[in-house]
Write a protein that binds this DNA or RNA. Structure first.
Length: 465
RNA sequence: GGGCCGUUAGCUCAGCUGGUAGAGCAGCUGACUCUUAAUCAGCGGGUCGGAGGUUCAAAUCCUCCACGGCUCACCA
């Protein structure tokens, strides 16, 4: 029987025969076979009802002594959690439930540990993360989340491929951890006797590919940041980054709207979705507003935009904590995070950031203190970060050098100088726009989950003992 | 790293101002051939997260530690 064609509950049985009523099933004998895990068991002595669960659903099976004869004694050895295969005829019970009347069955796997309680299931959050295999068996919505996660990635990929993008893989082990501002994980290569870093972003490698002549590239993969863990941060997380030559950030905003619509429509079946207590509407166009205008809208006085003393005072009066030695743009960024960000529920592009906050973005032509950058906020969270890419090697080198001063002051999050990246820009990079989207946060949004750990199969935890 | 909260049977949870640790489900035995968290009768099940302390007596009070949750800090 192991070699028989075993049906998958939902795809074959319910899809093909789920619409047949009791009489139709009496008149047409439909034999089927299924393998699955026993998740409920009701023993009546000479008859047993059980529910089998497989990857797509559940179906009830009915085992009778008079049909199974001597083999019926074996049924008494079944425990909840065992995996068995059955074959038999489909029928409907008195209560009209589609059921398999078993004529033959086989034990496939024995479960030695009991499953969690059938009614309350597994609730303990720690146990759910540590024993995700049990969580997946008993909490159906968990499985749904991870199916949706894969769909989100599939449709992102499909959209970009349809738009002529090439998917690439760049190194995860870096000799210089660049492309973002974050503390990296360290590892070690024995043969080369060399320290390496796990990447904090693929950005600088993807831009090297623009130099090499690929005009549309993207990469989906893990990034690693050696920072605190929270409901929005896991040390390893999945990003998609994509780059388009000969386009700028305005084009990219339109493109982002199309991309999100494509994915949301495919995955959720509508552009309006529920997230927590909000209804998020992905119908374009999304509001586009500069960082400074967004601050003004929330009542932040314009006079502090150009005056560090006043900005510091204004922030402190409102209990906004500032890092020591914060520059004016950094102070405004902190004010933004407190006064604007939490209120950006509907998709909103915040554009035109101060150059100090964006060392890899191109300056605006009419205002070199700002860059052509946007961040997309949804449900009070940053979902995407994008800009017209800086392709002037001289400006880029100057900005790296300026950052290095901070590194020398002891800021470990500032990357080392990447000389090879400068060399690549010196060869000549076409004007381009690039964007990164945090996949985990997007999945949270589209699956209505409040913690990043609920969209990562095996989130990082300390060892049990 | 700080603050608050949690950790009792395989699972979900009770256990009051300190006085021999409980229930439901799961398990075991028995009854029952259309049940839906099946039902009924009976039985077994615990280093109360760990280590100290206070006390005649600690799941309960105190201290430290471990793990987790929320939150703040951190976070391109």
């Amino acid at each position: 029987m192991e070699s028989l064609n075993l049906n998958i509950v939902h795809m074959k049985i319910f899809k093909n025969f789920g619409n047949l009523d009791k009489d139709q099933l009496e008149q047409n004998i439909i034999n089927t076979s299924v393998a699955g895990r026993v998740i409920l068991l009701r023993d009546f002595g000479k008859a047993v009802f059980a529910h089998l669960q497989d990857s797509k659903g559940r179906i009830q099976i009915y085992l009778r002594k008079d049909l199974l004869g001597e083999n019926f004694q074996l049924i008494k050895n079944i425990d909840i959690g065992d995996i068995i295969g059955v074959e038999g005829r489909l029928f409907r019970t008195k209560t009209n439930e589609l059921t398999i009347e078993v004529k033959n069955f086989v034990f496939l796997s024995k479960s030695l540990r009991p499953l969690p309680e059938k009614w309350h299931g597994l609730k303990d959050i720690e146990a759910r993360y540590r024993q995700r295999y049990v969580d997946l068996i008993v909490n159906p919505s968990v499985k749904e989340t991870f199916v949706k996660r894969q769909q989100i990635i599939r449709y992102l990929r499909e959209f970009l491929e349809n738009e002529g993008f090439l998917e690439v893989e760049t190194p995860i082990m870096h000799t210089i951890a660049g492309g973002a501002r974050a503390k990296p994980f360290k590892t070690y290569h024995e043969a080369l006797d060399m320290e390496l870093y796990l990447r904090i972003a693929p950005e600088l490698f993807l831009k090297r590919l623009l130099v090499g002549g690929f005009e549309r590239v993207f990469e989906i993969g893990k990034n690693f940041r050696n920072e605190g863990i929270s409901t929005k941060h896991n040390p390893e997380f999945t990003m998609i980054e994509f780059y388009v030559a000969y386009k700028d950030y305005n084009w990219l905003m339109d493109f982002t709207e199309k991309l999100l619509c494509y994915v949301v429509e495919k995955v959720c079946g509508a552009l309006k979705i529920k997230y927590s207590d909000d209804i998020i509407d992905f119908t374009p166009p999304y509001k586009r507003i500069s960082m400074y205008d967004a601050l003004k809208e929330k009542g932040v006085p314009e006079e502090i935009f150009k005056n560090q003393e006043k900005a510091t005072k204004w922030a402190k009066e409102r209990g906004i904590e500032l890092p020591k030695e914060a520059s004016l743009p950094k102070i405004l960024d902190e004010i933004f995070k407190e006064t604007v960000e939490p209120f950006l529920i509907q998709p909103t592009f915040i554009i035109d950031y101060p150059v100090e906050l964006s060392p890899l973005a191109k300056r605006k032509k009419d205002n070199p203190e700002l860059v052509e950058r946007f961040e997309l906020f949804i449900a009070g969270r940053e979902i995407a970060n994008a800009f017209s890419e800086l392709n002037d090697p001289i400006d880029q080198k100057e900005r790296f050098l300026k950052q290095l001063e901070e590194r020398l002051k002891g800021d470990e999050e500032v990357p080392e100088m990447d000389e090879d990246f400068i060399r690549a820009l010196e060869i000549g990079m076409p004007p381009a726009a690039g964007e990164g989207i945090g996949i985990d946060r997007l999945v949270m949004l589209l699956t209505d989950n409040q913690s990043i750990r609920d969209v990562i199969l095996f989130p990082l935890l300390r060892p049990e003992k």
